[in-house]
Computed example of a mutant assay.
Amino acid sequence: MKITIISVGKIKEKFYTDAIKEYAKRLSKFCKFTEEEIPDERADESFSPSEIEQVKIKEGARILSKIPKGSYVVALDVRGVLLSSEELAKKISRLAVEGTSEITFIIGGSNGLSDEVLSSADFKLSFSKMTFPHQLFKVILIEQIYRAFKINAGESYHK
């Protein structure tokens, strides 16, 4: 299986990039992992709602252009479905059994995802009603993907 994470914005902090590299290395035992970083649009706090919507549309177009054809798309959205680690593992396993060979997870920018990206997703996933820094969330997501593969392999990481 191939797992791709598409995220808006560049991670600059070394401790985040080191964590992502570590989990990517661990994941390589279970799947092919790739990531795509989409440049974020400038969005001042003074922007109007319509200007923010334009930012999301521009970022969304870049995201959509990077989604691999035929991939099962999971958009990370606060209004999505909350799953436990075990439920995420079951979802990934079920998709594999059904013949899905690639899953793409999408992390939006600080203003969220455009309606077009959300409507094109096969599944909307929420980790919490809380807001997380995007850089930290990418680490959390890749760790949970790794945890899901460990659960599915019956290995002892998940405790």
Score class of each variant (00 low, 15 high):
residue 75 A to D: 03
residue 83 L to Y: 10
residue 100 T to Y: 13
residue 108 G to L: 10
residue 30 F to P: 01
residue 142 I to L: 09
residue 94 R to I: 05
residue 124 K to Q: 12
residue 91 K to W: 13
residue 32 K to M: 01
residue 34 T to N: 15
residue 52 I to T: 13
residue 48 S to V: 11
residue 40 D to C: 07
residue 150 K to A: 11
residue 93 S to M: 09
residue 135 Q to C: 01
residue 84 S to Q: 06
residue 48 S to W: 06
residue 47 F to C: 14
residue 114 S to D: 06
residue 121 A to Y: 01
residue 74 V to A: 07
residue 81 V to K: 15
residue 29 K to Y: 06
residue 154 G to M: 03
residue 33 F to Q: 00
residue 41 E to S: 05
residue 33 F to W: 04
residue 22 E to F: 14
residue 96 A to M: 06
residue 159 K to Q: 12
residue 128 S to D: 04
residue 123 F to M: 12
residue 76 L to V: 04
residue 16 Y to D: 00
residue 120 S to F: 02
residue 3 I to L: 09
residue 135 Q to L: 00
residue 71 S to K: 03
residue 119 S to D: 12
residue 84 S to A: 09
residue 41 E to Y: 00
residue 85 S to W: 04
residue 111 N to M: 14
residue 104 T to I: 05
residue 90 K to H: 11
residue 54 Q to C: 11
residue 46 S to Y: 08
residue 55 V to P: 07
residue 80 G to H: 02
residue 82 L to M: 14
residue 80 G to D: 08
residue 51 E to L: 11
residue 30 F to H: 09
residue 86 E to D: 09
residue 118 L to G: 02
residue 24 A to L: 01
residue 103 I to S: 08
residue 32 K to D: 14
residue 37 E to N: 06
residue 67 I to N: 12
residue 50 S to E: 15
residue 121 A to V: 04
residue 99 G to Q: 14
